[in-house]
């Protein structure tokens, strides 16, 4: 009997936030029955998809005891970049007046734009990696600087004007469904999740990532190219922000320089709720998914319960602090 009680306590410490939020979801469902409607859950799933992709990127940085504060701004830059390149030919406020009409080849150009966004963000990710590994600037500071740089680049590039009038070949990426049932957005996120799971669990790169987070000196001695591994991690992260930004742009049908602001913090919070340890070396893609899902459900619940937007921030902040406090507790218990 005693042992059983102990297990329940352990379970609560390990999954407390999730348990509380499941209860909150049920409460919301009772108060507002539409909360459990199919539409609402599809809506949540569509919101989760790009955030999950971004959180996957951040998770690699966190597992190696780093962080990436430039994530949100890179999402914004990718969204703006994609937007400027994928406007309707007949749209009056076109960013590039000479952008040709691709006719039946628009889908090919959409893919090319994804690659352009990924390439541009990867340059910033590469610089992040170099600064953190070779110049040994703490990730917190290095990526904080990058956050400002990317924001500046985005402002210079768009001249701070909002971008709209997207071609349907672009918006269909977010709004379309395979066989009219499965949203593309959902499928893309699923594919990213599977690829990242494979990298984390089945490749030497993934093993090296956990090793660096566990003990960087030991990794070095064991012949792990820690610098290269970290650069790859920050570049992969940037590529995922680019993809995330591209999708967010498609979903909202327009973008501005403020897009993605603060998303890095949301992603870090989601990872932590999902069990990615801030002490490094621990974290799973499935956990990241749960974390993002939980965080998104929290936001939706608060909306459904009619909580004032200002108070929503306070609630989210409390959840982040409690999640990290519980994470640290797990670490202490292991000693």
């Amino acid at each position: 009997m005693k042992a059983k009680n102990f297990n329940i306590k352990d379970f609560l410490v390990n999954n407390g936030i999730i348990v509380v939020l499941v209860l909150l979801a049920f409460y919301t469902g009772i108060m507002q029955p539409t909360f459990f409607s199919k539409d609402n859950w599809i809506n949540i799933a569509l919101n989760v998809a790009p955030r999950f992709i971004i959180a996957c990127g951040v998770s690699g940085c966190l597992i190696t005891k780093g962080t990436d504060l430039s994530a949100g701004r890179q999402v914004g830059l990718a969204a703006c970049l994609a937007g400027t390149l994928l406007q309707k030919p007949d749209y009056s406020g076109k960013f590039y007046q000479n952008l040709p009409d691709f006719g039946g080849m628009w889908w090919l150009w959409v893919i090319a734009v994804i690659l352009i966004c990924v390439a541009v963000c990867c340059v910033f990710g590469f610089i992040n990696g170099i600064v953190i590994s070779y110049l040994q600037v703490p990730a917190f500071i290095g990526t904080l600087g990058m956050q400002l740089i990317v924001y500046g680049v985005c402002l210079v590039y768009t001249n701070a004007t909002p971008i709209g009038g997207y071609h349907s070949a672009y918006t269909i990426v977010a709004k379309g469904k395979l066989f009219g049932v499965l949203p593309y957005l959902f499928l893309i996120a699923l594919a990213v999740g599977l690829v990242m799971w494979f990298i984390y669990n089945m490749t030497p790169h993934g093993k090296y990532m956990y090793a660096i987070g566990g003990n960087e000196q030991s990794a070095e001695v064991s012949g792990v190219n820690t610098k290269r591994t970290k650069i790859i991690i920050y570049m992969t992260a940037a590529a995922l922000y680019a993809l995330g930004g591209f999708l967010v742009g498609a979903k909202s049908g327009g973008s501005s320089v403020n897009m993605g602001q603060g998303w890095e913090l949301e992603a870090i919070a989601a990872c932590t709720i999902g069990g990615v340890s801030v002490n490094g070396g621990i974290g799973r893609i499935s956990g990241v998914l749960i974390g993002v899902l939980v965080f998104e459900i929290l936001k939706t619940c608060l909306q459904y319960l009619g909580v004032d937007t200002n108070y929503q921030y306070i609630a989210q902040g409390i959840v982040i602090v409690v999640a990290i406090a519980l994470d640290i507790r797990k670490y202490i218990a292991k000693k």
């Binding site: 490749t203 030497p204 340890s277």
Partner: peptide, 27 residues
């Protein structure tokens, strides 16, 4: 600079030799 405290014995043993067990990118 020896052990990886938070990792398993498996990972601690194989960390320096993963490339030997990797085929087409997969361990």
């Amino acid at each position: 600079n020896g052990i990886f405290g938070c990792l398993s014995i498996d990972d601690n043993t194989a960390i320096a030799s993963y490339k030997n067990y990797t085929h087409a990118g997969k361990i």
